[in-house]
């Protein structure tokens, strides 16, 4: 975090932040907070928020690792979902303004914090764990490097929620459409050579909503901070479902 680095040459940046405190606000509002940022060093959006919080300690947002691996600080940054800790101001700021809102489509708890219950409920529906039927061997199960490679681009998901909350299909049916994050996890286990529940996983997805509400809009791909491709995972599951019927 760079909030403690001595600021030499500085300029003013206006953060326009979504504010809502259920203990005192009837409704949400946008608030301008002016902060000073160094001219010759590119801070991250999270650094800017930490500076703003020094001025107004009531400003609330989630954060933890500060390096894009824990998935805490997903938010809507100048209109696009992303992780505050790995989004540089040089990329995010437009016309010297930075608009920060909570991720869309989920209930707001306070300021930039959303209630992620719906997101995690959908994740749990895909049984996001390895299911095996054979007895565990004494040592590890064997898996070839090629089989293991099938999991690249899938196991890296950090559950930040950027993709699902950028998805119009998830906004419409957050209770019935599982959303890109959960479906990526579903494919992560179907694609795993060690998993022995492909058939029941496919069966669980074979209805009008769970998977088929994906219309290939690909917002999930464009916002994923880890560069993953949920749309491709969804289309892989689709192919399996179709082949299964055929």
């Amino acid at each position: 975090m760079s909030a403690t680095i001595p600021l030499e040459e500085v300029k003013t940046l206006t953060l326009n932040i979504y504010r809502f405190n259920p203990d005192k606000d009837e409704k949400a509002y946008m608030q301008d907070i002016e902060i000073e940022v160094p001219v010759n060093k590119d801070l991250m959006v999270l650094d800017a928020l930490l500076i703003a919080k020094e001025q107004d300690t009531s400003l609330s947002f989630r954060r933890s690792c500060g390096e894009g691996v824990c998935g805490s600080d997903g938010m809507n940054i100048n209109g696009k979902n992303g992780l505050a800790c790995v989004t540089p101001l040089s990329e995010a700021v437009k016309r010297n303004k930075l608009i920060l809102k909570p991720m869309p489509g989920l209930p707001v708890v306070r300021d930039l914090i959303v209630d992620m219950k719906q997101f995690f409920d959908q994740l749990e529906k895909v049984k996001p764990y390895l299911i095996t039927k054979d007895e565990d061997p004494e040592q590890e199960r064997m898996q070839s490097p090629e089989e293991r490679e099938e999991l690249d681009g899938l196991y890296e998901c950090i559950l930040c929620g950027c993709c699902s909350t950028a998805c119009p299909s998830f906004w419409w049916n957050p209770d019935k459409f599982l959303g890109p994050a959960a479906l990526l996890q579903s494919w992560r286990f179907i694609a795993d050579s060690r998993d022995q529940a492909t058939e029941e996983r496919l069966e669980d997805l074979d209805d009008a909503f769970s998977l088929y509400r994906c219309h290939g809009i690909m917002n999930c791909v464009s916002v994923c901070p880890k560069g993953l491709n949920p749309t491709e995972a969804i289309s892989n599951i689709r192919k399996k479902l179709i082949n299964r019927k055929g």
Partner: peptide
């Protein structure tokens, strides 16, 4: 403890022989 993690599904990188 490591083999248990593998049985739970931890996606370890693999050797040519298929081991961890």
């Amino acid at each position: 403890a490591i083999f248990e993690l593998e049985h739970m599904g931890l996606p370890f990188s693999r050797t040519e022989e298929g081991r961890i």
